[in-house]
Amino acid sequence: MSERLKAVFKSEPIGVTRLVSYIMAGDPSVEASLRRLKGLADHGVDVLELGVPFSDPMADGVVIQAAAERALNAQMTVKKTLKLVQEFRRTHDTPLLLMSYLNPLLRYGWDQLVEDASDAGVDGFILPDLPWREGQGLRLRTKKRVGNKLDFIPMIAQTSREQDVQAVSQVTEGFAYVISRNGITGGEVELPASVNKFIESLGNSLQIPRCVGFGIQKPEQVRALAKVCDGVVVGSALVKAFAKLDQKGLEEQDLIEQEKEVFSWLASLKN
């Protein structure tokens, strides 16, 4: 298991819970992504998710689709994403997970990918189009190649049945990513009242911490979820906030100033 990730869940959270943030690599540029990763880490984000852009992101809503398009227009690739992580690791120790659809990673070459990712300082993967039961071969292959350096984060959905949860019950690395509702990332839809109950129903069947994501953007949501989980993921709301700044066409110094407001807003979610 990634030591960096382990450390986060071992220590007590600062604020009501732990914060996992998501941004898309290369949206709108490598430099902006690096600066924002550092800023997020400096402002109390516990775990960073870094999206790898894909042309056909079927699990994503319009906000992250648009971010992927911007990143692809800026010629972002897996290779450049890994370089970005390497650069981030020179100064920061915050655990970082790559969130990617399978195809760009397969195209890079899986064995090469896991070696390069582990060398760059990636702590694991979140793969929205690789359900847990389909990923066994890939996980074992990765283990053979780089040992326990890269964690695979299992996702648990509201539709998941006992057998699906059972399948991840043996997992001892990383955390479980619990999807707050049926649907795609982002959106203004309220979380269903049943979500807390659902997380509680997972009970002792998991050995790993639980983080909840999809549609989270308000402090009251975070406070309610904090009672039943170990962390929350903020993705689309953050991507949207940065995209709004990028559209303003600000001078770099003004942009950097206004980014700080986004970091503070994010940090305030867990107060």
Partner: peptide, 21 residues
Amino acid sequence: YETSGHFGPYGGAYVPETLVP
């Protein structure tokens, strides 16, 4: 290790976890 519907090496069900059930 694949578990779902393959034709030789091709096929499978690479979808979000929500759709698995």
